[in-house]
Design a binder for these strands. Structure first.
Ligand SMILES: [Mn+2]
Ligand SMILES: [Mn+2]
Ligand SMILES: [Mn+2]
Ligand SMILES: [Mn+2]
Lengths: 220, 220
DNA sequence: GCCTATTTTTAGATAAGCCTAAAAATAGTT
DNA sequence: AACTATTTTTAGGCTTATCTAAAAATAGGC
């Protein structure tokens, strides 16, 4: 139905429009996320606009139409289901799944995605804790709190990440921090806002403020 | 490493060179299998030749080089592993797997294929009974016999198909014939060379000569 | 050896997606 | 309101993979 490239653009516009609501998405922002040039983005925006997938006014940025939003969410759904497959079944690391899912998300077969969903037992979140859109396009968005906002002595569960970069995920691997771990905030250092955590009742570990800002937790 | 299109051309040349040995593969044969035009094929042959993937002499047809054969076999390996995944894990029918595997085979990640292979428990044949090339490029080719060559009262196991079309596979579904079934040749009608089979010691079924020619069997 | 049907290649276009460089529009500052 | 820095678009090209139509090569019959 839609090309590899069109799906990538729509997904990118979708992600950007989630970030800075309710502003329109800019040409440069798209170019940066897609690692391409602004001129190329303008070309594609015209094409997507012709196909009624976005509403686009020259120089004013873009917004997804309902039609475009459906395609974008469908692509996000495919991406996250594949990530679950790679992580749960093939034993990829959570730092490795994104790159491969970036390709797999463009395989065209509705039947494939439905069967994959069933095979994975209808997962609701991906390996990074992000929600998997349902087939009908709805998304159950559970609000997660940045670890940094938690007070001393509270008990929480690590449930997501704000930053998705490979280097950040690998850093968490080294710290043996992964989704599902029970975390108790043992101490918060005033000086640099670093936190001492008690993980799964094991040894205490220290995380920097930068790390604590990018870990998302939920109540026990 | 190699594009979607290049992989498809190399795989097609490989399949054609398997069929009619030791002749060179012709431009028209490639065009027909790929559902494209001869002029387009000539363009691609030049490109593949420049990349030393095929040996190509104008008007004389093509042959894969060792380098090209490796890429082709790698693609066949990926295709058949994905078919096993779709059939065994996602419960696709054997008439449905080819189309989707045609896309999945182009996902670029050596790691993915190794992990998929392990997940599937290192299968040796795909859902059509075709051998899966090993990682090192070797292929264990067990010789299968066309059912039509079997004599009355012999007992065999259905182990492959010669024809891979969706309509033939669906016809076999209707007849409840699938890989692994034990077949005893109960009778061979002289008139139209149709055969009466006893399947899994159940009821007798009649298959036409056309069908019997395209079923491959091995000894019990 | 020549003629003809068939196959294959060349020539010239097209479409998608990308690029650089230049021009135009916008937004922020005075 | 005018100047300027930044953003965005346009203009013109490039690459990959296609196509149609025409030209060239080949193979087979006589
Ligand atoms: Mn992608
Ligand atoms: Mn994810
Ligand atoms: Mn393919
Ligand atoms: Mn197969």
């Amino acid at each position: 139905m839609y090309s590899f490239t069109e799906e990538n653009y729509l997904k990118t516009i979708y992600h950007l429009s989630q970030q800075k609501h309710p502003e329109s998405v800019t040409t440069n922002a798209i170019a940066e996320l897609l690692q391409t040039k602004a001129a190329s983005v303008t070309d594609m925006l015209k094409k997507l606009s012709d196909k009624k997938l976005i509403s686009y006014v020259k120089y004013q940025g873009v917004n997804l139409t309902e039609k475009g939003r459906k395609v974008a969410i469908g692509t996000v759904r495919k991406h996250r289901l594949w990530e679950v497959f790679l992580f749960d079944k093939l034993k990829f690391g959570w730092d490795e799944v994104h790159e491969v899912a970036e390709q797999l998300e463009h395989i065209q077969s509705d039947n494939l995605i439905e069967k994959l969903d069933a095979f994975l037992n209808y997962p609701t979140v991906d390996p990074h804790g992000d929600p998997i859109p349902r087939k009908d396009g709805t998304i159950k968005n559970q609000k997660l709190t940045p670890l940094v906002e938690c007070k001393k002595n509270t008990q929480v569960v690590m449930s997501g990440v704000k930053e998705h970069s490979v280097s950040f995920l690998q850093h968490l691997n080294k710290m043996e921090l992964s989704l599902g771990k029970k975390i108790k905030i043992h101490e918060v250092h005033e000086f640099d806002r670093s936190m001492v955590l008690m993980v799964d009742k094991g040894t205490k570990i220290l995380v920097s403020n930068e790390v604590a800002k990018n870990i998302l937790v939920s109540e026990v």
